[in-house]
Structures are given as C-alpha cells and as structure tokens.
Design a protein around this nucleic acid. Structure first.
Lengths: 266, 266
DNA sequence: CATTTTTGTCCGATATACTAGACTGCGTGA
DNA sequence: TCACGCAGTCTAGTATATCGGACAAAAATG
C-alpha cells in the first residue's frame, strides 16, 4: 500500500477535490499547509499534489517557493517536506503577542508537574475546538492528545465554556448540525448542549464524563483575557475512574490557577 | 508622526521597494509575513501595503484571504492585523516534529530557573542567526532578547558553533561581506572569524565577550541531533562583569545539559 | 532483465489574478 | 462649513501564473 492510499483513507474528501479548476497560488498554499497540519507528518510533493487536488507542476512550483521562504523544509533525503523554521517564528510571534502567554505556559507546566495528569490549553479555531498546547501525563497508559487537531465543539467540556458568551441563537447558528453526533454515534440533543453551556456559564467551569470517548473525564476552567472575554481554557484530561475526591481537588486547583491568570489588565 | 513613518525609519529598504512591478500572490504573502515578523506588532492594512510596496487593493485582497484562513487575525477595533492561530499550530507542528523538542524546552526552563540568567535556544535561518526561544533573566536590569530577529552570524558565539561543520571556503561563501561589520562599527577580520570557528569546533563550545554589544558575555554549547549534526545551540547571555568563577561554573552546567540532549537516536 | 510507476523539470497557451484607479463614507483639523 | 487623508470596496484590462502534457531519469515492480 502506498503512502497516498493511506492518506486518501484518512481524508477522502480532500482527495476527491474537483479537478480541472484553476485556483490561485494563495489558495493552494493555504490548502497545502492545512493538509500538512492534518497529516502531522512530512509528505512527498507528489502525495501532496494528489491530496490537495492540485496539478503536480503547480505543486512543485509552490512547494519550492515555500522552501525558499523557509515556511517549509525538506525532511530526510527522499523528498519529504514539512513545516519550516519560519513557521516556528510566526507562531511564536502569535502566541507571545499576548503579553502573559509565558505565564499561561508556566501555569500549564506547573499543573502538569504537580498533578502528573494530562493538562491542556484549549481554544477555538473557526467553529471547531483545538488543543493549543498540552503536557501529557506520564503513567504507563498515558492519555495524550494531538495539538492542532480540530474537534467538534460539542464533544468537549472546554467548548461549553468557550461558547458561554453567545446566546442560544448564536450557538445554534454557529455549530454545524453534524457536530452534535458524538464519536460513538450518539446524537447530543441541541437543547442539552445549550443547557450545558448555560450551566458552564453559571458555574464558571465545565466538566464532562465520557463525552469525546469512553475513558476520559474532562475538567475545564476559563482564562479571562484583559477585557474579560473567555477565549482560552485550561483543562485536565483524567482517566474516567479517577476517584471523586481527587477530581474535586483537581478542579479546585485548576480553577484557582486559571483564575490567577485572568483579569490582570493587558 | 504616523505609525508608517516610524516603520519606514526602521526598515527603509522595504519601503522603497520598487513599485510598478507585478508580483504573484504567494510572493506577496511571504513578504507580508516577513514584514509582520520584523515589525513584531499588529499593523493596519494601509501601512502593510506601503511597507511591502504592494498596491492597496492587492493588500486588502491578500489580508482578507489570510484572515479567512486564520493565518492572520484582527487585533483591536481599528483594523490592525497580526499573526493568527493557524500560525501557532503550524509552528507547533514544526517544533514538535523533532521528537525531543519538549526535552530541549524543559532543559531551557531548568537552566533558566536554576541560574536566574538569560538562556536562549538558537539556530540558523538562511545565512542569519536567530533566537528560537528564550527565558529572560529576572533582575532589575534584565538582559532580554527578541525571538525571531535575524542577526549576522559573526556577531554571535552560537554562530561559531553552528558553522563548525563547514570548511573555510564554505564559510567564506556563506557569510555576506557586510555581516563582518559589528554593531559598534568595527570590522571583524574574516580570518579571525574562521579561527574562532575552528576553535569552537575543537572545544565543543564557544564563548564571546562584548561581541554583539558592549555589556554581554555569551556562552554557547551545541545540541547534536540524531545524526550528529549541530543545528541548535543553547546559550547563556550574561552581564559582561560576571565573575570568572561563575562563568566557568555556568559553562560547565550548560555543556553538561546540552550534551545530555544530543545523540539520543531519533 | 523488461515493465511500470514516480520524480523532477520544462514549455506553450490561456484563463485569470493582479493592478491602477475610481468611488464612497468616515473622522479630523482648520 | 470645507478640505483633507484614510479605510474599505469595486471594476475593467492585461501581464502572467497556472495548467496540461511531454520528457528523461530514477526507482520500484514482477
């Protein structure tokens, strides 16, 4: 089985992208970078071309230009490419533009070190939820998570907090219908989701068991930015059998630390 | 004085970019992102247009497309834009593709915490030196440094290590002539630089006093990757009056930690 | 070994992305 | 009030970026 066939299997919709259409370079670049992010691994130019539905010649042209600019770099000797150093610098500039980002990361580190559990920094990207950074727990059966992978918002505890500034209609308009279908096939009733958001808003935290999968229990607390908006959350991802006493203890710790990060004028 | 005039002052060459030339979108995007990185602050679209020498209509077109893709995002209410969340994710993917990047960052954190000094992770980008991450010292007169700013390689201690895989001719071809001119106006003789590289190669570390500026003393040690290549360095940036005993102590610590990071098969 | 697939580069034709410039509306300062 | 500069959008025309396809060389495949 070629690498491409594997790719096609994981992202068939992209592979069937309509051919014959002329697209501009910028669009190709954006599609290419998104594809590379989803793939999370270096790819060969030929495979990229097929995956994003672009002509080979065009793909070579674009990839070479991006290599020149250091936005991509070659990996290994057989023509694989992946993100380049320029991306690191752009991304660093993005994160650190928020003046207390270093404090957020420090908090993330300390929470992980003190608890030994998986801790994540989460936010939205468009109408999806993404993990922005994480510290994975250490045990033999570690619960780890993929930074940058987009997940339907209703699958997550943090999502309930991140939407708590919206009214019901805004939420209804924001979330695509298919995102209410949980990974195990169950459909989450929209009204339940709206109620959960309201609850999260009242409580100032959110908790969910066996939502995105059967074996995790998530605790999430908001980080308020300078203007009191809730654009980031900290969250614990615990094994679902964590004793209640410990969950309560960790929730308190999480809320205290998250609270300590916010509202400190910008 | 408008913001633009300030910008022009700091990057006059870009502002005088030849007009009237038609460029493709990809090139505009790359130039735009580089400009934003150099500026290290949100900019308004009009100012971007002038700074990168692109027509206003084109700049709006491109900026809007990048906003849509989350590679840029609006900041504040008066039309400023800066890097967006997608950049964070691309950059994260870049750094963490190196499997032991988390260990490198952990080492950076520990060195900073234990010493209280400024510690940096450094590398090359093209034929320039860049700081990839740093932890700044805490004292009242902190020596801080800008991640992502490009600096001529001969100005840095790390640069001597990062070129140590090249022979003299390769170095001569690699470094632009004007990069031998130090910030204080002195010219560093090329032969001295080549000798310093050879010394760094023999010693396995590099040290420089009052090179990039009058008041810092830099210590650098290499991080070897899986194949023994020297693509990253860790370095201390110390006040120039740091007692010799302490410098020796810190150098030993730095070398030990940097050594501990390398050669652990990929 | 012969056969097939893939890689990387090149080229001419043309659909179109980019540009110049016009236009509106807002805010500011005289 | 007017004059001015800037933000943001829109349009028509053309310079050119993109595309399909051809090609040689390299790498799988049988």
């Amino acid at each position: 089985m070629t690498e491409y066939e594997i790719l096609e299997r994981t992202a068939p919709e992209a592979a069937t992208a309509a051919g014959g259409e002329r697209k501009r370079g910028i669009d190709r670049v954006i599609i290419l970078l998104e594809a590379l992010l989803r793939q999370r691994a270096p790819m060969r130019v030929g495979d990229i071309a097929r995956l994003i539905g672009a002509p080979r010649s065009t793909t070579y042209e674009i990839v070479n230009r991006l290599l020149e600019a250091d936005m991509l770099e070659t990996v290994g000797t057989d023509g694989h490419v992946y993100f380049g150093r320029a991306m690191h610098l752009f991304g660093w500039a993005y994160s650190h533009h928020n003046a207390h980002y270093p404090r957020i990361i420090e908090t993330l580190d300390r929470l992980a070190a003190e608890s030994g559990e998986t801790v994540q920094l989460c936010g939205l990207r468009g109408n999806k939820y993404v993990v922005l950074d994480s510290r994975d727990s250490v045990g033999p059966f570690r619960i780890s998570s993929q930074v940058g992978v987009e997940v339907p918002i209703p699958w997550t505890a943090s999502g309930r907090l991140l939407l708590s500034h919206m009214d019901d209609d805004a939420v209804r308009a924001f979330i695509p219908a298919e995102d209410y279908r949980l990974p195990d096939g169950r459909w989450l009733p929209q009204e339940d989701f709206l109620a959960a958001i309201a609850l999260a808003r009242r409580q100032g935290y959110s908790e969910s068991a066996a939502l995105a999968d059967r074996f995790t229990w998530c605790l999430a607390a908001p980080i308020l930015d300078g203007r009191g908006a809730m654009t980031l959350t900290l969250c614990f991802v615990l094994p679902v059998d964590t004793p209640e006493a410990r969950r309560i203890e960790l929730l308190a710790l999480l809320r205290e630390r998250a609270m300590g990060l916010g509202l400190v004028g910008d």
